[in-house]
Design a binder for these strands. Structure first.
Lengths: 343, 343
DNA sequence: AGTTAGCACTCTGACACACCGAGTGCTAAA
DNA sequence: TTTAGCACTCGGTGTGTCAGAGTGCTAACT
């Protein structure tokens, strides 16, 4: 697809004006914003050409033009200028993240909050997947006469706990034995291999001890399973209620989609690039056919770990939002790497 | 306010018909549902009386009647029949709660989910306040060469953790010393008294050890503060989008209110009774002037601990919902009591 | 005195209709 | 190739009409 210099300028101007006002852009009003002097008729001809190329469309015959998905795509890929994020903004963002930088889940939840309040869209983040993590430590704490808590720490920096119940009174000695046993058998083991089957075989290898410790082992398996799943943090869904382009019906569909962590996670995990924009139907999700998603994967210790994203109407200031998402993505990665001492 | 037998029946019938259909109730259609034979004119007269008493109102002059807040109040307090929850329902609910009954936060979050899906309204729950809890155990786990995690367990059954960083390499011996010290000084101490000031004085009493351990102590203080706050779990906000009585504007106001945990928590903590219905303006919250809240406090170990609630349009099936909330509230209390071994 | 039938009145919501204005596409001239 | 001019299209708004549902009131009835 060939676009003359002028066509590029006009396409960009239409999109930027439409993003700013939300109204279909007519030839006359566009003329005034252009930095070269042509008549509205000329602009009309060019707009007509752009329509034929599928970059612009008209909501109805005698209305101004609005960008198509393809139009946005061209704009984002080739025409848009991306304002870098300022030092002040960076400092502001950092000051907001820092307080929650002591735990992966809290951190990602905080990031989603910040992103939502900065962009006024809905924000999503996923915690690092613990799939490839190994068990770093197992702790035991007695919580009552016959119950105790097992705490599992992984190399992904997560900590999961489970309470388990015994049929006998737990003494410090028993707990010590349990502790030694669990640590001996489990430290360094990948969480992904701590399956019920694995626990079975472990129990079998313990002889008569197995009976006593079985509930603790089950608790460990449970915690290990949980530590593998990446958590999805959602924030700022309310923001979407304020965009007139979303009617009752769209809002419901989007909200419904957002409330399904599995689908959300799938959408974000498919992405490979550093920061990607998914416009409308490109997501192949009917619920998002009126929305755009800006997603960025982040790395921890040099490896792909999770994603942060925003979801909003197609009509958004892509340049600004992309910069924010990109910067936050980098920050998250750095902070998590530091938190886990992997640098 | 005196209500004749017939007025009571008519008021109840109007409210029940309105709840069922959502349409203002006219005299003629009401006549057909009444179990005694009177003409529509008679019903009209009685409805007129009920309007004068402020129990019914008309959206406009020539429309049917809808209940006022006062009308709902009278209905709920004196006229409504409350269907008990069936054994099947109980079993169903229990089977859903059980899987998350190992941790207070998970449990309450699960309860909110269940309540939202059962009632199709927005559901809120608060975790037990840890204000009066004492420290039950402190654990330390090394997470990297110079960082470790402190885990605080309280008598309220919660577990909070913080990572802290030292300026020196952490050895198992140092960790052991820290561990003995922290447990010696902190077990049995109320979390509410673990303030920065308290930590200061504790550090002072430790002499030259204080320097080394100070970051660990700060982490403990942090975790203690966090364990005091009760978490607010929110679920099913999306459900509210499906009630035609909520327009864009109302939805926004309600969602905005729901997104402020502090306000939400305040609303729920003011309640004293077992289960209470707050109709519209009774909440003294403009955001909720079109909604009803059904809230029930729950007890743990015989003491008031937290609340669960639903928020929906005024037009709801109060009897059914109250029963559900009441049952869940009891279940939560029982499970938490058991979880914390306080029975 | 309470109840009922009848009737005039009120108000909403749906529909049709006309009109305005913004914007277009086309044509012919520059 | 660009521009001015013009006829045309279409959505949105405002007005008028009409049917339907429901009321309040009055007078008759039990």
């Amino acid at each position: 697809m060939e676009l003359t210099q002028r066509q590029q300028k006009i396409l960009a101007a239409v999109i930027e004006l439409y993003i700013a006002t939300g109204e279909p852009v007519g030839s006359k009003s566009l003329c005034e914003t252009l930095d070269f002097n042509v008549s509205s008729a000329t602009v009309r001809n060019e707009m007509s050409n752009l329509s034929e190329m599928g970059l612009l469309e008209q909501p109805h015959t005698s209305a101004g033009r609005i960008p198509t998905e393809k139009g946005y795509r061209v704009y984002i890929d080739r025409l848009m200028k991306r304002p870098g994020i300022t030092g002040d903004e960076k400092r502001y963002i950092d000051s907001l993240i820092l307080p929650s930088a002591y735990d992966p889940e809290k951190l990602l939840d905080g990031v989603a909050k910040i992103l939502a309040s900065m962009t006024k869209f809905a924000a999503v983040s996923t915690t690092p997947s613990g799939e490839s993590a190994v068990i770093r430590a197992v702790q035991l704490v007695q919580t009552s006469r016959r119950t105790a808590m097992v705490i599992l720490m992984t190399s992904a920096g997560t900590m999961k706990s489970r309470v388990f119940h015994c049929d006998f009174d737990i003494t410090p000695e028993i707990l010590r034995v349990f502790f030694r046993m669990l640590n001996e058998k489990l430290i360094g083991v990948p969480v992904s291999s701590v399956t019920p089957a694995y626990i079975q075989s472990l129990a079998a290898s313990m002889g008569d001890m197995a009976m006593m410790i079985s509930s603790a082992l089950m608790a460990v398996a449970d915690a290990a399973q949980e530590s593998m799943q990446s958590e999805v943090c959602l924030n700022g869904e309310i923001n979407l209620l304020f965009y007139p382009e979303f009617g009752q019906e769209e809002i419901r569909r989007i909200m419904d989609f957002l409330s399904r962590p599995a689908d959300l996670c799938r959408l974000l995990s498919k992405q490979k690039d550093d920061v990607r924009v998914i416009i409308g139907q490109e997501s192949r999700r009917p619920e998002l056919s009126d929305s755009s998603v800006i997603v960025s994967r982040y790395n921890v210790g040099g490896r792909d770990a999770g994603a942060i994203a925003i979801i909003g109407p197609m009509r958004m200031n892509y340049g600004r939002i992309i910069s924010s998402v990109e910067y936050l993505s980098g920050s998250v990665g750095r902070m998590l790497t530091e938190l886990m001492d992997l640098e």
